[in-house]
Amino acid sequence: MRFTEPDERTALREAVAAFTAGYGPRYYREKAKAGAYLSELWAEAGKLGYLGVNIPEEHGGGGGGIGDLAAVLEELSAGGCPTLMMVVSPAICGTVLARFGTDGQRRRWLPGIASGESILAFAITEPDAGSNAHNITTTARRDGGDWLLTGRKTFISGVDVADAVLVVGRTEDARTGRLKPALFIVPTDAPGFEARPIEMDLVSPDHQFGLFMDGVRLPGDALVGDPDSGLLQLFAGLNPERIMAASLALGSARHALDTAVGYARQREVWGRPIGAHQGLAHPLAQIKVEVELARLMTQKAAALYDAGDDAGAGEAANMAKYAAGEAAARAVDQAVQTLGGNGLASEYGLGAAIASSRLGRIAPVSREMVLNYVAQHSLGLPKSY
C-alpha cells in the first residue's frame, strides 16, 4: 500500500503548477467579471497535453487515468484558475466516449477533447427531476434512420463554449415498451436546439444554461454505444465527475488556505504576525488537516476507478466529493475571517470565492444525496427516498 503518488504524477503536478502561475488568480477574476471564458489558458493547456492526460494514446491523449486528470485540475485550481469544463469535457464525456463510444465517435471527438480544440458539455439535470435521474423525461424516438430528441435540461455548464452536448435521455425498449436511459451527442448548432443563459450571482467564466430541445433531428450514429447499456454508460461518467469535482474543490481550498497563511505571516498587529495567535493559527491548521484527509480519499477514489473497481470507486468518489466540498467551504470562510476586511476586497478574490466554494456542497451531487448513498450502501440502512 502506497500513500505517495508516482514520480510521473508528481512531475505532472509541478509542470501544471508552473504553467498555471503564468496566468494566476487575477487572470481568472478578470475573465469571470468580463463574462468571458479562459480561452487562452484552455488552448495552451490543450497544446501541452494537460487536458487529455486520461484520453487513450491512440486518440491523441496521454493514456493515463482519471487520477492524472484530477491532479491537473487540482493544480489549476490551487493556482487560482479552476475551470469546471475539465470536469465535464475530458472527464465525463471523454471517459464515456473512450469506454463506450463507437469507433466513429471516438475518432470524431476524442482527439479534439484531448487537444482542447473540441469541448463537449454534459446534460442530465432537468427542471422537474432534480436529483432523481429516474424521472428524466427527455426522450428520443425513431424517425426512419434518424432520432428525434425532445426535452428540457437545466443548469448545464459551458454550452456557450461547447461544440456539442452529451445529452442523457430515454428511448423506448422495443421488447418491453418501457423507457430506458440513452446518451446522445447533440451539436449545439442543431436545428431545434436552444440554449438560454441562466442568470447567476456566481461570478465564474463557466456559465449555466437551460436547454430546450424540440424535435431535434439527429443521425442514427448520434446514439452513444450500445442502446441497451445506457445506464451503465451514464454511471461510468458519474464517478469521474465526483472525483474531478473533489479535485476542483481541493485545489480551491488550497488556494484559499495559501492566501490566508501568507497574509497571517505578514500582517502584524500588537507587534507580531497575526498568525502567531492561536485564535487564527488553530483554525488554519484544522483546515490543513481536513484538506489532506479529503485529498487522500480523492486519490483513493481515483486509484480504485483506474483499477477498474467501479463499485469501490463509487463509494470512495462520493465520500471524496463530500469531504472536499466541506473542506473548500470551510477554507474560504476561514480565509475571509483571517483577512478581516481585506477578505472581501477584490484584490484577494475571496469574496467571490464564498459563492463558488459553496457550489461544492451542492453540485454535481448534493451533500445530502451523498449522505443518503453512504447510509444506504456503506452502512446498510433502509433507503429513505
Rank of each mutant, 00 (worst) to 15 (best):
G314C: 07
Y28R: 06
G61R: 00
R265C: 14
Q208H: 09
Y348G: 07
A303V: 10
V96C: 07
V291Y: 12
K180G: 11
A256C: 13
E126G: 06
D309N: 09
A329N: 07
F19S: 07
M86H: 04
T150M: 10
G49L: 04
R107A: 13
V269N: 04
G101N: 06
A301E: 04
E44M: 09
G116A: 02
Q299W: 13
S346T: 15
D146A: 08
E8F: 14
L12V: 11
D228H: 10
D146F: 07
W109E: 06
A133F: 14
G63H: 05
L304F: 10
R217T: 14
K31Q: 08
Y373W: 14
Q266G: 15
G64Y: 06
P181M: 02
D201P: 12
V87W: 00
E40M: 06
L211A: 03
L149M: 07
A327T: 06
L350V: 07
Q278H: 13
V370A: 08
E58S: 15
V332L: 02
A260E: 01
D173F: 09
S118H: 12
G380E: 13
P187N: 06
L148W: 11
G314F: 11
F100E: 05
S157D: 12
L296E: 15
V374H: 05
N54D: 13
T102I: 12
T171R: 00
Q334S: 08
A78H: 03
G308S: 01
L339R: 02
T171E: 06
R108E: 14
K33S: 09
P364I: 06
L350Q: 04
A249R: 01
L179A: 15
L179F: 15
M319W: 08
I354T: 15
I66D: 04
M85C: 05
L76W: 00
S384I: 14
I92F: 02
E315D: 13
S247A: 15
I243E: 04
G60M: 01
S247K: 00
L232P: 03
D143C: 10
A352E: 10
W270P: 00
P25G: 11
N54M: 06
